[in-house]
Amino acid sequence: GGGGGPLRVVGDRRVTPAGGARPDVSGRVEEIRVVGRTSRIASPAYVYLPPEYFQARHRGRTFPAAVVLTGYPGTAEALVDKLHYPRTALELAKAGRMRPMILVMLRPTVAPPRDTECVDVPGGPQTETFFAKDLPQAVSAHYRVAEGPRSWGVVGNSTGGYCALKLAAHHPEVYAAGAGLSPYYDAPNDPTTGDLFQGDEGLEKRASLWWYLKNAPAPDTSLLVTSSRTGETNYEDTLKFIDLVKGKRPTRISSIILESGGHNFNTWRREIPATLRWLDERLGGGRDS
């Protein structure tokens, strides 16, 4: 990796047990700790680096990157071990179906146990700032991430899916694409969240994707939503959200609708290969220098 930044590598692991120990063949997953310069939030994460990152002929190459988020409460390990994001990215790239990509995998619960819904809570955790500013800056300072406004995407499931869509909508200058697997479209208010908005009606409206895409200037970003006709409670809302975004150029909307599925790892594993390919098609960057 490159120079400084508030990021520390604390361990590493193979992409798959059968992948071999050579990172230039199978890539590597590094365990990191990040401290946000602005938000002061500290969080663990995993970073997947593709084999090309370690190959001598690509020593000067930069790569597009994607933040990958769990649901609530979730564990970052599940993104590696159960949803198989690194292994899927490795297999797709080896098959020529997507470019090599850096994945930054963590849970949106960066102020545990509170579910902050990726909101900048007045007087509380500045979670949106962490994901929109601190995390990309720290990762870019340490790893060879491509520069430019279309180098980053974000994807997540459930709570992470809501966060991914909101981050792309609120910060298109950072995230060129946001994919929500089984997302919802508004921040909940329940015992796990506490009072996220402290009476700030403007902040509460902004956190609603319904309100934001109806009333704010349409962001220049690409969004992907997924659901299932049977087995998923967000199906009707997802169809309404697709219809809403279709008329909001330059925002672009895509969807994956399964015949049957559910709010679970089995369903998301079916959607992840197409989602990674979709992200790859919408991100710029990634070149040898």
Rank of each mutant, 00 (worst) to 15 (best):
T230A: 15
A179N: 04
V25Q: 13
V154I: 15
Y46T: 01
A111C: 06
V34L: 08
P122F: 04
V174M: 11
P73R: 13
Y184W: 14
R61W: 09
S151H: 14
T127L: 00
R249N: 10
R22V: 12
T193H: 02
R13S: 11
A56D: 11
R97M: 04
K166P: 05
E77T: 14
G247M: 00
R249E: 13
S43V: 11
P172T: 03
D195W: 07
Y162W: 02
V47R: 07
N215C: 00
S208H: 02
S254H: 13
L92E: 06
K246T: 10
L49C: 01
S255A: 15
R14A: 14
A95M: 02
L165P: 09
A168G: 01
R28G: 04
L103F: 03
W268N: 03
D186S: 12
V29S: 07
P100I: 05
F54S: 00
A176I: 03
V154H: 10
L79R: 04
I32P: 05
L203T: 14
V68R: 08
G180D: 10
E232C: 11
Y53A: 09
G202P: 05
L90T: 05
F197C: 04
A21I: 11
E236D: 15
G285E: 06
S151D: 07
V174G: 01
I102N: 00
G74N: 03
L92F: 01
W152F: 13
L224C: 02
H170F: 12
T127M: 01
P125C: 05
Y212V: 00
W210V: 07
L167E: 06
D12M: 12
H84S: 09
R150G: 00
P273D: 09
V154C: 10
T251E: 00
R206E: 13
G194M: 07
W152V: 06
R14E: 13
N264V: 00
D115P: 05
F197S: 03
P108T: 08
P50I: 02
V10E: 09
L90R: 07
V119I: 13
P217K: 03
K246S: 12
W211L: 03
S228L: 09
D280N: 11
P113Q: 08
Y162Q: 03
T116V: 12
V110E: 04
R28P: 04
V155T: 09
S222D: 13
G71C: 10
Q198S: 12
R107P: 12
Y184H: 14
G285I: 07
E117K: 04
A66E: 06
L239N: 04
T116A: 13
N266A: 15
P17W: 10
T275C: 05
P250C: 02
W210D: 09
Y184T: 08
E117G: 01
V29T: 11
R229C: 05
Y143K: 07
L69E: 01
A78P: 01
D115Q: 12
T129P: 06
N266F: 14
S43T: 14
R282L: 11
P188M: 07
I32G: 04
L165V: 08
E236V: 14
E204M: 12
Y46M: 06
G160P: 07
V29D: 08
T38H: 15
E117A: 09
L276S: 06
V35K: 14
L279A: 03
E31H: 14
G180E: 10
